[in-house]
């Protein structure tokens, strides 16, 4: 089924259209959220929220971009919001621990092992994902879309609603930032 037919069916509230959309895009949405959130259960929750929003707002989709681009944008917005909330909670827990209520450990992010990483790279990828977490949002998104989702610079530019030049700059700075973080990590070993 072509994309335009699927969109028409979704906008016409055809019963079979939504499950078809979920089947086609669940992996993409889930993996994008997983890269940002780095927790399988939470990424699944976010992916579900994405599809709920898509179901509710499919009428607003004008077809100015590809359906996948639109889905990527919704997923990234939701995942980054989720991550921000989590970071706020973590900061709050740290402040609370300063005043004697110690629940800091509760919000400590455990090591993240991406299920799709090759066996021989598992250990290194855990260190890399930790370093990715310290990147500024734009650099993080560009890096993950490129390295995990395998998107081209042009596609990333469309998703992030920016220019190819800006994406290249994000990727370059992300790599610099990661090299610095990793150098710090290995020096302290």
């Amino acid at each position: 089924m072509s994309e335009s037919i699927l969109i028409e069916a979704l906008q016409g509230r055809e019963r079979s259209a939504f499950p078809r959309l979920v089947s086609s895009y669940q992996k993409m949405v889930f993996n994008t959220a997983l890269g940002i959130i780095q927790n399988k259960e939470e990424a699944e929750d976010v992916a579900q929220e994405v599809f709920v929003q898509v179901y509710e707002s499919i009428g607003q989709f004008k077809g100015e971009s590809k359906l996948s681009t639109w889905l990527y944008r919704i997923t990234l917005t939701k995942a980054l919001d989720w991550q921000r909330k989590k970071n706020r909670k973590k900061r709050f827990a740290i402040v609370k621990s300063l005043f004697g209520v110690n629940d800091e450990l509760q919000y400590d992010q455990p090591d993240f092992e991406h299920p799709g990483i090759l066996m021989e790279n598992k250990e290194r990828s855990v260190i890399l994902f930790k370093a990715i977490n310290t990147l500024p949002e734009n650099q993080k998104v560009a890096f993950l879309l490129h390295k995990v989702e395998g998107q081209s610079h042009q596609e990333i530019a469309d998703i992030m609603q920016t220019t190819v030049g800006a994406v290249e700059s994000y990727l370059h700075r992300a790599k610099q930032h990661l090299r610095k973080s990793l150098a710090g990590y290995y020096k302290n070993l």
């Binding site: 089947s23 992996k27 889930f30 799709g116």
Partner: peptide, 18 residues
């Protein structure tokens, strides 16, 4: 470490996702 994401596969959501 930077290249450890090479050859990454898609992660599968749980069976009951849908």
């Amino acid at each position: 470490t930077l290249n450890s994401l090479e050859g990454i596969q898609c992660a599968e959501p749980s069976y009951y996702f849908k």
